[in-house]
Write a protein that binds this DNA or RNA. Sequence first.
DNA 1: GTGAAAGCGCTAACAG
DNA 2: CTGTTAGCGCTTTCAC
Lengths: 344, 344
Amino acid sequence: MAVTLKDVATLAGVSVKTVSNVVNGYAFVKPENRRRVEEALAATGYRPNVGARNLRRGRTGFLALMVPELSIPYFGELAGLVITAAQRRGWSVLIEQTQGTRTRERATVDSLGPHLVDGALVHPEALESGDFPDPEKGIPMVLLGEHAVDVELDRVAIDNVRAAHAAVSHLVSLGRKRIAAIGVNPRRGTASLRVAGYRAALSDAGLSVVDSLMEPADKYHRANGAAAMKRLLSLPEPPDAVFCFNDLLAVGALRSVAERGLRVPQDIAIVGFDNTDESAFSLPSITTIAPDKAAIADAAVDLVHARIAGTEQTPPHEVQPPFSLEIRESTAGVGTAAGGTPAA
Amino acid sequence: MAVTLKDVATLAGVSVKTVSNVVNGYAFVKPENRRRVEEALAATGYRPNVGARNLRRGRTGFLALMVPELSIPYFGELAGLVITAAQRRGWSVLIEQTQGTRTRERATVDSLGPHLVDGALVHPEALESGDFPDPEKGIPMVLLGEHAVDVELDRVAIDNVRAAHAAVSHLVSLGRKRIAAIGVNPRRGTASLRVAGYRAALSDAGLSVVDSLMEPADKYHRANGAAAMKRLLSLPEPPDAVFCFNDLLAVGALRSVAERGLRVPQDIAIVGFDNTDESAFSLPSITTIAPDKAAIADAAVDLVHARIAGTEQTPPHEVQPPFSLEIRESTAGVGTAAGGTPAA
DNA sequence: GTGAAAGCGCTAACAG
DNA sequence: CTGTTAGCGCTTTCAC
């Protein structure tokens, strides 16, 4: 069926080795032979069998990327960037979805044998420290996103505490006093870091942390943001600002505020997280924490590459790409809230 | 390093064959041997080498999915569903991005050797008929999305002409007379089908097709929708309704209408296409054509599967999954436009 | 039922 | 510089 090295060799009247040398760009091949091989290559339309080559070389040519769901804009965008970054290193990317459940994350993480992929980029949501396979064995793995898990792995994530602090401080600078948070999910790694930043910013501003203003969200989807915001709005003393732990929650919150007949940012200011494309075009557009996603993707790919190449033998490394606060309509152009929000 | 079949065999004191039989669930193995093998399997933590297995079996276990960009919500959502569908068939999915350029699409399409993947799902944007490798040779390939290309391949796509017709007819039923279209890109396969549906619906309604109301869009991104809408709004006789060829364009259009101080749907009604999650939460939410994406993903995977298994030897097949018109705020609750739009 | 041996397509020694 | 020879880890005849 398919053309093999041997076929080409026979046709060119040389040995398999010589053909292999030509295919792999080995320099020292007699010009005459090279010409004949190249002719035979063209004539047969030979394509190397990647599987066989990798079996021999002991590598696979694949990189795995584990994410909760590709339909979540942040992960769609990130995956796109990872694929691009991996391509530069000659890798194809295999995507695994876990829906953010611990069971599936664990299953994925230890199905990632060295035969399937050369390395993995994993963005866990619910994984706990003990769930990881022994880093000594198994393939190089880098963790994406900051997490509370304590495991000896390379990581790439922006400084979530500082980012959350920046977001909330921005709200404070607008004169807001009752600043809520949506996405306060205790069982979620990243969430605890953002909560820490939120608390710190409030206390730096002399504001007290009010439990009823901290809304959990089972999933970080639009609908959950809308539901959480509805609950906040029915509080005896509703918030005058909300920090949502991702843009999707913010989009949902926006809708609930509008349905209640209130205005953003005049009545309620909103800040999101992730700077997904969507947040720049919503009405109003959403102020958000903008992690440098391309830098995240590049750093992650570079890290696995270093581990695989053995360049990096040092203990696990943590890379913190930069982020910025993207100020948009959902917090812009207004100072203190219009309504009489009583000071805490 | 890694445990091989042979290691397990040695430990269990049986031959490689027996271990292989157990691993592959072959029924007739002496219970005693089965037990010992299973013990050895557990003790060593054996994991089959997928590469070697596939080399032997002549398959790879991978399916390729070619899309323009994962950061476009429609493709992110679709890719997620494809991965899920493929998983049920035991395939891992490899994603290739082309940015929708013909060069990269062509390069991708003919780099997809039989050694790399068992089959491919391709969603071209700019590919032309001659760009495809000979379907006889090469791997099974199914085309995603409707296209003007004439090539002997299985396809999966909703009926774009009928869908566009439904969208525009809905606008007509609202009493709109000057119905614009955004995304009218001559060099784009799907676009021409949607234009056909648009024209047909207008003519069915006795409305004339006005060239200046047909806006192209270089890319189907939010920014392009916004720009196109701006141009439409500066027309001497602006439209009272717009059919956008995807939701992203519609989101952009929404913003330009709002910035102009006009209301949706009262002044301008908007219909999108794709039913991305975003369209259900925008303000206002967007009426859109909702293709059954899960059905698309399933059908596509089933089709390659049938080709690979050889079940399907018949000539190329076209599957048209269902779609529906999802009526939302951007066209709801109003009849004829408020303003005095002159009849055409 | 199970073992031995061949070989999938390729690359890495090692001679020549 | 190039040919020959082993095997990467697995499945698969084919005997026993």
